[in-house]
Design a binder for these strands. Structure first.
Lengths: 266, 266
DNA sequence: TTAGTTTGTCCGGTATTCCAGACATCATGT
DNA sequence: ACATGATGTCTGGAATACCGGACAAACTAA
């Protein structure tokens, strides 16, 4: 247990400043992109070098190659770089290459329009939960900037569904111990979490209230791929004080749409 | 003149099968992504190797690295790979990192909803024109799959605006001679094109009818960045037989919205 | 001014990546 | 049955990509 699982993510920024290790250009590139994603804002080359723990000269060379390929882009007056136009095209290609994903995005649009609530598409990335796309409620000010930000699985309703295929022993290895601690300091008992996962699997949806955030009620329903596995979830993010009848109505809609998007019958 | 400009794009697929040339991993990665984008569908590793002219063993190693980073993804039963989830997140980060781009996308949504027509956001990529994003008209069946596909500049209305900052001599070097030939075999006289570019610059918009496609009328208006340069264009794609009054009305809307999105006053 | 920090570029050497090729499997066709 | 071709893995060796470090220039602070 403990945190053996994090060992997989050796590219994690910052840690292990062990010097003198030569690495491949490809690996540097991957680390660079993940660092940029984590930072979520343009960075200067020197800072990138520090963040991915690479020599400055190497970083310059890599960044220049990527700039030329438009995978990175100069932003602002001097020295800052961020993702470039090519990335946008690659990402667009990813999200439209199959009819399935396109249908999911259309559903997202429709649900947001019909209900006026915040709708999200969620998935896993390594051993963390991420929002893959979202449509924000026009009402409350809730900025849609958390797409791609990694969040501990136990903090989320979707997370409980997305790990539904794992046994308890696997889960213990998979989820870092630190991830059971909520942002406000409370700690979720792992056994309680495992029970939640089990419940979510049996009832085919998951709800959390005031978990990662004291003011939100989250509900998630699974989208299954052609093998019946859960790749992504559909998810409503509601104000906690949403009246129960409306919650039930929305949950019904959510489950129906998620079922319609799933590829395999039971 | 002739086609000296294409020399810049040495990563262009297929050509120059000269063997025995060692290349950096980074360059292989870039070529791989561009090949995938051009192909617009999942590919097998062996075919990728041929397409980017790399040794098979090298290609396997690179692909596996990228798979692990989720920049590529296995698709289908066996052996096919395409862009992965990480690409989607990187691309999302690109298109949302600044308020400007977000406003552009919202405008795209609004214009599509208001008019029911096909709206596109266009830009340059190297010496080609590309659609960066689009909202399709619900009416005619026009599939929105041309985002990211490179098209010769002279085929498009937007292209005439996007090269407006260049002198005639620059343009001659910049645009490959072959790009003046339309898909149906007609050839645009370069001088005529230069005159079009000049006209577009002076009147602040550009229109083409039945150019790249016999059945469409395109109109484009420039979005200027804070330096007054034209980075992207907003564009309507209409049926050629759209009545003139409506065309004028749409053109007015287009110019107004594009102006509102531009950052610098004149 | 001086001293300190950061940026961008360049260069020589070596640790390593990338390449060529072999090999076992599997699929397909005749 | 055999022949053909593609897939995925592995290995040794040589070309070179990456690294450390130096350098000039620009910027800041006192």
């Amino acid at each position: 247990m403990s945190e053996g699982a994090t060992g997989l993510i050796e590219a994690g920024a910052g840690v292990q400043p062990q010097a003198g290790e030569r690495r491949r250009g490809i690996d540097r590139v991957i680390m660079l992109f993940e660092a940029l994603l984590k930072h979520r804002a343009p960075m200067r080359i020197g800072d990138i070098a520090k963040m991915i723990n690479a020599p400055r000269s190497t970083t310059y060379e890599i960044v220049n190659s990527l700039l030329e390929a438009e995978m990175l882009e100069n932003v602002g007056s001097e020295g800052y770089v961020y993702f470039g136009r090519a990335m946008h095209l690659f990402g667009w290609a990813y999200s439209h290459h199959n009819a399935h994903y396109r249908r999911i995005l259309e559903t997202l649009d429709r649900m947001a329009a019909e209900t006026g609530e915040t709708v999200q598409l969620c998935g896993l990335r390594g051993n963390k939960y991420v929002v893959l796309d979202c449509r924000d409620s026009p009402g409350p000010f809730r900025i849609s900037s958390d797409v791609g930000v990694e969040v501990p699985i136990p903090w989320t309703a979707s997370g409980r569904l997305l790990v539904g295929h794992m046994h308890e022993t696997e889960l213990k290895d998979f989820i870092p111990a630190a991830d059971y601690e909520l942002p406000d300091g409370r700690v979720i008992a792992p056994d309680e979490f495992f029970a939640d996962v089990d419940l979510a699997r049996r009832q085919g949806f998951s709800e959390t209230s005031a978990l990662a955030d004291r003011f939100t009620w989250c509900m998630a329903a699974p989208i299954r791929n052609s093998h019946g596995a859960i790749n992504t979830t559909l998810c409503f993010v509601l104000p906690v004080d949403t009246p129960e009848p409306r919650r039930n109505q929305l949950l019904e809609l959510l489950r129906e749409r998620a079922r319609a998007l799933s590829l395999a019958g039971s």
